[in-house]
Amino acid sequence: MTVQRRSLSKSKKLLIQNSVLYVVLTLASIVCILPLFWMISTSLKSGNVIFEVPPQWLPDGFHIENYGKALQDIPFMQYFLNSTIISVTRLVAEVFVSAFVAFGFAKFNFPGKNIWFLLLLSTIMLPSEVMLIPVFQMFTRLGWVNTFLPLTVPAFFGGQAVFIFLLRQFFMSQSDELMEAAMIDGANKFSVFVKIYLPISKPALITVAIFSFQGSWNDLMGPLIYLNDSKKFTLQLGLAMFNGMTKVEWGPLMAASVLTLIPVLVIFFAAQKYFVEGISFSGIKG
């Protein structure tokens, strides 16, 4: 009888705990989803109800014309293509090169290894504004301004320090015995990296890939500084163009933002399984 009562009170306690947890999680989810909901809702509103006070959460009918305007006011498809070219090129380069460098730091000993790694990490702390003018001058002298080269080529030379750091942590957690066994069987270090460590790093690589894509896709400053010809603009620059001299076109801006968000969402959901694994392996937090 006492045991029954105890287990009943235990299950009651669990129920209360779970209920509280779900309420808190539901509230947190609402807070996170609200801006997205507002963006989608606003993209379907007519101009004069966007800033109604109190806010009108649901659109006054479906003003699809905002989407039409978003596609027509800026060359949306051209910008979409430009963003895709830059983001995909960077993604390929950053994932492979970062893994390559990280593998070296994780699995090999060489003179000054820790100092080199520290130097690499210190670049994370360097604000991009400090580098803006000298780097711009360098690319100007190379004749690369107003091309995609300044936005893509640097990714082939070392990737991003933060990705290298994360992948190094991941590689360090993998057993050295795998490498030793493969080398006894005659594999060299590069083939060990490509044939053994890369395949088992899929979750970490996909996580880095998602972050790389998201970073490039949402980058405003890089394309703004290096691209002059509006035909070469990316979607982020296109979104900024809805901010006019005397008004902001909120409806079309929100519609264009929704359309711009879709590729990132698709990629995230397609790779969600690996992404969660990658976070738990490498300790990345979004």
Binding site: V145, N146, T147, D229, K231
Partner: peptide, 10 residues
């Protein structure tokens, strides 16, 4: 890709 967008700015 960059080549087909040769520099005209500045």
């Amino acid at each position: 890709i960059s080549g087909c967008a040769s520099s005209t700015g500045g």
